[in-house]
Design a protein around this nucleic acid. Structure first.
Lengths: 205, 205
DNA sequence: CCTGGTTGGTACAGTCAGTGCAGTATTGAC
DNA sequence: GTCAATACTGCACTGACTGTACCAACCAGG
């Protein structure tokens, strides 16, 4: 066993070929979804366009829709890393807000592709909502670390996570349109939602 | 043509039989989902348990999952009616909050069934999120009536709708558990989220 | 080298959700 | 009583996804 203390990719011909196949599949899937729509594209067609068998498609992606978001795993990992980064924040809600807004600042090409695809292919929004569950879990876990895991605190963490993700998803889908400053709207709404300190009780209801 | 000025149900033997078939299908679907899980139940089994053909199932429900929420349409209609009820509210956000909380007060048996089923059968949560889109549209439309339909106002309405539905969904799923006052948690979070007036600009970001 | 286990991909058969269509039988309006 | 509307059925089909056996290229170890 090689002394791989760090988790370097063991880059061999095999691994490279596999990643290339995966990349090609996703590329053609996104292209075809955009050209014809999601329902008008079959997995057979995607596989054929990528030059592999249909069965191979499902060795790389669990569902047809998953091919539209090939870097989902990495993005979630990045988000979790950012949430856990640095010293424990004084106000977790403000930390959460700044991490969420940081996602708007990094203009990765894949984010633009994703926004455009979601705005263009409505059938993919359901799948998007499904994958967003990973972010919800990440946020709820993060908040749970600060609020404890009593049932009511957990429920609150869950509800906040749902709400926050809802805001970000809505704005990210619209982010492709002209003349909309999605980041500003997100910042404003999150500011109102998360600005009040949730660590102190609220009795004026 | 009879002078049906009001929209009374034309109750005939046929209509009754149809409603009964639909009810039976939903009843067995919910039972089987609870007993074996969603993926372990086939539409064939549901139809057989209800004593009809498989094809008939799809005359009553568009998807397998839809049978788990047979009264979804009525509930959405009720919600929309409550939103539009009365004079135009002074503060639409507060009106929205009170309508949402009213949903907790009416302890309909179907709501309890739904909560229990969602807590028990995780595969149905995706479908739940999908059907919740109808509520999102209703809320966004309602807010749009007050805020106008400029792109940024529409985006804000959409984002708020997403957030609010996220909170309610999270709490409703947990509502079946013991010792959790889901309504109180929802009221508190919505109070913080919607309490500040969104009609005035916020400059302290 | 070479040899043998690992692994990316294939072929094939199968399950299940969902649709289109042609047909039957009961119902209800005139 | 007749005839159209309609609740339901049977059948054939598409398309997503899975299990399994198999091939072939790769990448050790000696």
């Amino acid at each position: 066993m090689a002394d791989n203390t760090n988790d370097e990719r063991p880059v061999g011909t095999r691994e490279l070929q596999r990643l290339e196949t995966r990349r090609t599949l996703a590329e053609h899937a996104i292209r075809l979804f955009g050209e014809r729509g999601f329902d008008q594209t079959t997995v057979d067609e995607i596989a054929a366009a990528a030059g592999v068998s249909t069965r191979t498609f499902f060795l790389h992606f669990p569902t047809k829709a998953a091919a539209a978001f090939p870097d989902h795993g990495e993005r979630v990992a990045l988000f979790i890393g950012r949430l856990a980064d640095g010293a424990p924040p004084v106000n977790p809600m403000l930390h959460l807000r700044s991490v969420l807004l940081a996602g708007f600042d990094t203009t990765s090409p894949s984010r633009l592709t994703r926004s455009r695809l979601l705005a263009q292919v409505p059938e993919l929004r359901d799948e998007d909502a499904r994958t967003d569950r990973d972010y919800e879990v990440a946020i709820a876990t993060f908040l749970g670390r600060h609020w404890g895991d009593e049932p009511e605190a957990a429920l609150r963490a869950n509800a906040i996570a749902n709400a926050v993700i809802g805001v970000v998803r809505a704005t990210l889908i619209a982010a492709g349109e002209q003349g909309i400053d999605a980041r500003a709207v997100t910042a404003e709404i999150l500011g109102r939602m998360l600005g009040t300190p949730f660590d102190e009780p609220l009795h004026s209801m």
